[in-house]
Simulated scan of single mutants.
Amino acid sequence: MVQRKLPVTLVGAGLPQIAELAGDAKSYAERLFKFPSIGNLGDEDAKAALTKPASEEDVRFDEEALTEALRVTGGYPYFLQELGYAVWTVAEGPRISQDDVVTAVPGYEAKLDESFFRVRLDRATEMQRAYLRAMAQLGPQAQKASDVADVMGRTSQNLGPTRAELINMGLLYTPEHGYAAFTVPHFDTFMIRAIPVLDVPPLRPRKPRD
């Protein structure tokens, strides 16, 4: 299509490692596309995502409620959708307050934990879960492999295969050499809720490949 300049447009979306995956699927494929980063909504757009649908039902959000909603969701579109739903189920009047948002948070987190986050964690092995939990302990930003290894009492060499497996599974990606980050936001706080205490399994020799 590129060589013949055919009038065809392909639009797709994916997690942060999509450019790397395109190159893995077909050599030089990553050169054929543009990969703009689509991050979280800005404050005004995030507020509009909540206030516009509510206004159609003659319901309004207090400014403090919107501020709390943005703090909880970080402006991530899907999280705003789930929080808006959770708030709608607990608010009683035509005015949604900050207290309504705070009250809705446990239900909001439970919904995300059961679906959005849990389906990712359920695919991980015991060691992979420990690696994710150790990363979460360090915070939401990209983490050095050596720092994660230190938290787990291992070496980067020991954990190299586990880290590579998590990247191949789409749970982590590498924004720069030597670092890894979660592919979805707030996965760190979910890991701490799901696994309150880090438990690193003992070292076991890996089975040789056939």
Results as ranks from 00 to 15, higher is better:
108 Y>S: 03
59 V>Q: 12
136 A>K: 07
168 N>H: 03
127 M>H: 10
134 A>W: 09
166 L>Q: 07
46 A>I: 00
89 T>E: 15
41 L>E: 06
186 H>F: 13
201 P>I: 04
156 S>C: 02
145 A>L: 13
27 S>M: 10
78 Y>V: 13
96 I>R: 10
34 K>S: 11
47 K>L: 01
19 A>R: 15
50 L>H: 04
114 E>Y: 03
39 G>I: 06
198 L>M: 10
20 E>N: 05
148 V>F: 00
40 N>Y: 03
99 D>M: 11
125 T>R: 09
105 V>P: 09
145 A>F: 03
207 K>P: 00
45 D>G: 02
13 A>S: 14
34 K>M: 05
209 R>E: 13
86 A>I: 07
88 W>L: 10
46 A>G: 03
56 E>A: 15
10 L>H: 06
136 A>L: 11
32 L>V: 11
195 I>L: 14
106 P>Y: 01
188 D>E: 14
65 A>V: 13
44 E>D: 12
195 I>R: 10
182 F>P: 05
128 Q>H: 03
62 D>A: 06
8 V>I: 15
156 S>T: 14
95 R>F: 11
176 E>M: 13
6 L>P: 05
134 A>P: 04
99 D>V: 12
61 F>P: 04
18 I>D: 06
51 T>I: 13
176 E>P: 01
92 E>W: 02
25 A>K: 07
8 V>C: 12
42 G>H: 03
1 M>K: 11
39 G>L: 09
171 L>R: 00
168 N>K: 12
205 P>V: 14
129 R>F: 06
143 Q>L: 01
202 P>N: 09
140 P>E: 04
195 I>G: 02
